[in-house]
Design a protein around this nucleic acid. Sequence first.
DNA 1: CCCACGACCTGTGGGC
DNA 2: TGCCCACAGGTCGTGG
Length: 287
Amino acid sequence: MPELPEVETVRGGLAPVLEGHRLTRVEARRPDLRFPLPENFVQVLTGATITRLARRAKYLMASLDREDTLVMHLGMSGRFEIARPEGTERPGQFLYAREPDPKHAHIVFETEVGARVTYYDPRRFGYMALVNSATIHLHPWFAELGPEPLSDDFDADRLKSAFRDRKQGPKTLLLDQRIVAGLGNIYVCEALNRTKISPFRAAGGVSKPRLEKLVDEIRKVLTEAIAAGGSTLRDYAQADGALGYFQHRFRVYGREGEPCLNDLCIGVIARKMQAGRSTFYCPVCQR
DNA sequence: CCCACGACCTGTGGGC
DNA sequence: TGCCCACAGGTCGTGG
């Protein structure tokens, strides 16, 4: 599920509950997610204070008052739920929700003020690890990550050199986290449709001006999605603590057979498998 | 180095 | 209603 905007929304939801708080109880209800949890996972985290909750690409990074950083990736189906004991809810905070589905509630954190954060992940493509903070930039998950798309490091020059001589479509290359970090299947489809670039054409042949536009549209679609996630978060905060999913209106994703929404375009959205993933696009205006 | 494809897991929705 | 298959927002490893 989660691409950069969703992970950012989850970060924003968890930060007030976790940042500056001490974990008084940590439960790993199974020994592994996608990978085995570290042997000392519960031991290291119990009693640790989370000093800062950040995001890099699709990773959540919880800095600790310990040597390690808790790194979390939601995979495809990971999500968090926040709960507070009944009677302690305050405006803008989270109510105690329903009993969780225990089958997929894999990790539980509790803080010194009684907040409970539960990680659910039916498919278990997500993972958590403890990584030494001082050398985290050398860790394989981070060493080769490309720039954050919303930072100044990401621009048309970088895309141009990453695309040079490449025959794969821009769709496939934009999913490569070494080129730009945080995009996934949905937002790549959305950005290419807005830019009217074909997902399938050789990436190396896309002109610089069109790459400028692509950078621009990537930034816009992510920013809009984060804003939508923020408002979803406010709604959730009044109902229950589910975090991680929000439904956004997409212009191509999931709209096979429906009209293209670009101005004056008479095309119909199509879906094709590309590198094992569904690509949604308009065959008429995306060239 | 480049690229395509299968694997990892479980749930769900559409078609029959 | 029930069954079965295709597919799901992400990475990683293999082999050509």
